[in-house]
Design a protein around this nucleic acid. Sequence first.
RNA 1: GCUCCUAUAGUGUAGUCCGGUUAAGCACUUUGGCUUCUCAAGCCAAAGACUCGGGUUCGAAUCCCGAUGGGAGCACCA
Length: 558
Amino acid sequence: MAIQNAFEHGGETRDKIILGKILGTKPEFRNKVREISADITEIVSSVNHLSLEDQENEIKENFPELLAPKEKIQEREGLPELKGAEQGKVITRFPPEPNGYPHIGHAKAAIINSEYAKMYGGKFILRMDDTNPEAERMEYHAAIKVGLEWLGIEFDIVKSTSDDMELFYEKGIELINLGKAYICTCKREDISKNRRERKSCKCSMGDIEKNNKNWEKMKDKFKPGDAVVRFRGDMEADNAVMRDPVLFRIIEGKHYTLGEKYRIWPSYDMAVAIEDSADGVTHAFRSKEFELREELIYAILDALKMRKPAQGFFSRLEFKGMPISKRIIKPLIEEGKVTWYDDPRLPTLEALRRRGIKPEAIRKFIMSLGLTKANTLAPFDALESFNRKFVDTDSIRLFMVSNAKKLTVKNLPISSVEIPNHPINDMGKRTIEIDENFYISGDDAQSIKEGTQIRLLGLGNVAITKQGTEIEGEFVENGEKTDIPKIQWVPQKTAHAIKMIIPKTLFIGDKFNEDSLEELDVFTEPHYLQLKEGEEIQFVRFGYCRKDSQNQAIFTHK
RNA sequence: GCUCCUAUAGUGUAGUCCGGUUAAGCACUUUGGCUUCUCAAGCCAAAGACUCGGGUUCGAAUCCCGAUGGGAGCACCA
């Protein structure tokens, strides 16, 4: 072993390492460390005296099997295993609030939870967490559904938290009767102040009978803000969440599905605790800003003697320079700095889709981030790289020129040319009608020198006879030269003008990037018109783009 | 301010629970090469990390203590 190690590390080894290896493979030596370490030191020094060649010969003679290449460590596929999870019995859930458009952060929560259900052959629940009528709208509910469908996420059960209002009331009353909850009629500011100063208020002294009466009064008499139901936690707890948090409050706004049927609404903690338990959720994964709520949720369920699901937490996912929060996006829309929630610069699912990101790429990308709780500010590069692999195989290759310059080619022997739609995969061919007038890209035009040759991709070589505002050249029959600039081109006669939109980072630091959207007027082949909207294209030597409409394409990535 | 979470290459992570079999694995990026009628994809290679300081131990990325950086909570939002 010493020889092997020495050989692998340039002819020298160290006794400590050999000792470690021995103890690692043969635990029975662990209580005899002192005895064997002397031997090891001796062996190591004798091995170190051998030359590299001698070591190699020694290995070849006595331990030839050691020369076999080392096996690489196998990387775990997918998510880490769950403790105490039984095949077929895992139930997970994704509970978005329908209060905005779904974004990459939703995708992370949905994908992690759904992957676990899949991994254990369990069930996956979509639960619209709609307990704040003021914030929720049908429009968002629908957008979330559309986004999830696009991601390819499937649910076994679809429900809304508000389906269980009667259950919340039942459990709420039970908590009151258990003395675990009370009605508080203090002012909002005082509640907040007391929580900060860890002091109880008078309401917490009230008896069960009074609390029951006040609960009835919450149904009609009390106005919003007059009274809330609070959990009897511990006002002196270090975890501020435990300082008698609100379980129910009065909201008079119209709920988007239930209208004005209820005015007492459960808070997030109450709703999640009861729902996860009642729905049979075994494992609940949420982003880590909820970590402090775990204790509360367990306390509520303990008080009610209800089953507790296991909880897991993961870091929030954001892209550098791409804000996720409505607080930031909404003003941008109002100021006209971005067009809408589907603006390709945004990390919403709709924007990602429009930009040409494939759902499979998002899934792979999110899985590659793992379940860490360390903050993740992922660079968009990583997603792009996953996406490129999906998109490359079935993107049609088309020619597109930007900053077009005219090129006239004399002596063209043909009037049309057939060009394959993909270099490797059989995606058919297209025929391009040509005459002597072409467009080429401005950048290419600039670098062309008079008297040299260029190759028009798929067509042939051209000897440049005149350089200037317009370029002229002559077709070279049977042009053999291939070590010359190869450029893409578009026939002038049928060139189709489109707008190319190139999204860039929205924010640099915390400043809005005024140049975050570049627009180019470009020409492409008429074949573009025959592509379906939403199709991914690779414009040769430019990059991958998605057809947004007949006269607009969005740049996906290089 | 109080409390909690977190820290591995330029970036994202695996390994950490249960210290040794890994002088730290993978992916992206970068750089070189091969291939190519694209600056794409594919193939090969190189470069590059355990935040710091103590402690425990024969042995620490892994356990303990402390410091520092980053994030979160202290809402009648979820």
